[in-house]
Amino acid sequence: MTTTDLHALTGAYALHALPDDERAAFERHLAGCSSCAREVAEFTATAARLALAASVPPRPALRERVLHRIGTVRQLPPGAAPLHRVR
Rank of each mutant, 00 (worst) to 15 (best):
P58H: 11
V66C: 14
R23I: 02
A47G: 12
R59S: 14
E64N: 09
F43S: 00
T46V: 07
E64V: 07
R23E: 03
A24G: 03
L67C: 11
R49H: 13
S55R: 15
A14E: 01
A51F: 06
P77D: 00
T10K: 02
R65G: 08
V56T: 14
A24L: 06
R59E: 01
G71F: 03
D5P: 03
L83H: 14
A45E: 07
T46F: 12
L83C: 08
A81Q: 15
L30Y: 13
A8L: 03
H68R: 13
A54T: 15
Q75R: 15
P19L: 02
P78H: 07
R23Y: 05
R38F: 06
P78I: 03
L6G: 05
A12N: 11
V66M: 12
A8T: 05
T72W: 10
R74I: 04
A51E: 04
A61P: 05
T44I: 04
A80Q: 15
T3M: 00
A25D: 10
L76I: 06
S34F: 02
P60G: 06
S55H: 14
C33Q: 05
A48L: 03
D21M: 07
H7V: 00
Y13I: 01
F43N: 02
V56S: 10
H84K: 14
L15Q: 11
R69E: 02
L83D: 02
R38I: 02
M1I: 08
E39N: 11
C33L: 04
T10D: 05
A25Y: 10
F26W: 01
R38M: 05
E27K: 11
E27F: 08
A31F: 00
L6A: 06
A45L: 09
A47V: 04
G11T: 09
L30T: 05
L50Q: 08
H84W: 06
G32M: 06
A37P: 01
T46L: 13
H16Y: 09
P57N: 10
R65E: 03
L67F: 12
T44W: 01
E42N: 10
L83S: 08
L9C: 04
L83Y: 13
V86Y: 13
A31V: 01
A37Q: 06
S34R: 10
L18F: 08
A53I: 10
V66G: 13
R87S: 12
H29N: 08
R63W: 07
E27P: 10
